[in-house]
Design a binder for these strands. Structure first.
Length: 286
DNA sequence: GCCCAGGTGAAGC
DNA sequence: GCTTCACATGGG
């Protein structure tokens, strides 16, 4: 029987921390409820004892889009057990146990992170909301809720001008987003193909886009694909590495990179997310 | 006013 | 290889 509500049984899932953790930008907190958009679905989520309750605008028969996005089948204890047993990671995990990685749509994730450079998370949310409101297709929403839009397709954005995008307050990122939209819409960059290639090859393919460097590429590979060893290094993660792992003397970028790829194990991307969250919420040394 | 934000590319050495 | 700078915009 198709319904518009579902309870997902899952342990070790901190919904609020996950949705606010700066990997996805379309979630708005309410009174214990998170409202957002996944693909073409308006959805409300709230964490309850033993799991997550979801409500949609209309009847749903196949909920796999939701469970896949939330990654509720992932066994978190296995991931955590794969981390090196050091003090920084122990503290970071203890501080936010239940923090998860989502599995987003590659195009939306790529576009969002192109917009992310030297922006605070709240500002990225504002820009993404503006782009969706202006150029995304309207979605079905329950009575009493404000109108919501899907994130616009690459084809839709590719048809715009740079000025249209600059009007969405994205500044110097506008030509980068436009170039990415045109590369994807024109078939020059096949985001689906990246699902089946090695991490290094997928990274290279993304970095060919102007405005996409190693950090943004790794965000997309970690948050939208199945690359558990993608390890985006932003200002916060760099602070974590310097302060928690190399407090005495600075390491060259090459040495740091080698440390990242050898030290954190098969789920290093997850370790990165815990370190990121820990530094963001503990910006000052204890 | 000032500094900073889930960076990147270009120019300089 | 590494360092410095510009690039828009808004929050603290």
């Amino acid at each position: 029987m198709p319904g518009n509500a579902l309870k997902i049984l899952v342990a070790d899932y901190d919904l609020a921390t996950t949705l606010a953790s700066g990997q996805a930008f379309r979630w708005q907190p309410g009174a214990g409820v998170w409202t957002g958009v996944i693909h073409r679905h308006w959805v409300q989520l709230h964490g309850v004892p033993g799991g997550i309750e979801a409500t949609t605008a209309g009847p749903v028969t196949d909920w796999s889009w939701l469970t896949h996005y939330l990654q509720t089948d992932l066994d978190l204890p296995t991931v955590l057990a794969s981390f090196p047993a050091d003090e920084p990671l122990r503290a970071a995990v203890q501080h936010a146990r239940g923090l998860r990685l989502l599995r987003q749509d590659p195009w939306e994730c790529l576009a969002s992170f192109i917009l992310s450079s030297t922006k605070q998370i709240v500002q990225i949310q504002q820009i993404v909301a503006l782009v969706a409101e202006r150029y995304g297709e309207p979605l079905a929403v329950p009575n009493g809720h404000s109108p919501t839009h899907a994130f616009p397709s690459a084809e839709r954005l590719a048809a715009l001008s740079e000025a249209d995008l600059r009007d969405c307050k994205m500044g110097f990122r506008a030509p980068y987003l436009l170039a990415a939209a045109r590369a994807v819409a024109g078939g020059k960059l096949d985001l689906e193909r990246l699902r089946g290639v090695e991490l290094a090859e997928a990274r290279e393919a993304l970095i060919t886009l102007p405005g996409v460097g190693p950090k943004i590429a790794d965000c997309v590979l970690l948050f939208a694909y199945d690359f558990p060893q993608a390890f985006p290094v932003d200002v916060w993660v760099m602070k974590a590495l310097r302060r928690l792992y190399f407090p005495r003397r600075a390491r060259s970028p090459a040495r740091l990179q080698r440390f990242i790829t050898t030290y954190f194990g098969p789920h290093s991307g997850y370790a990165q997310q815990y370190l990121f969250h820990y530094m963001r919420t503990h910006p000052n040394p204890v």
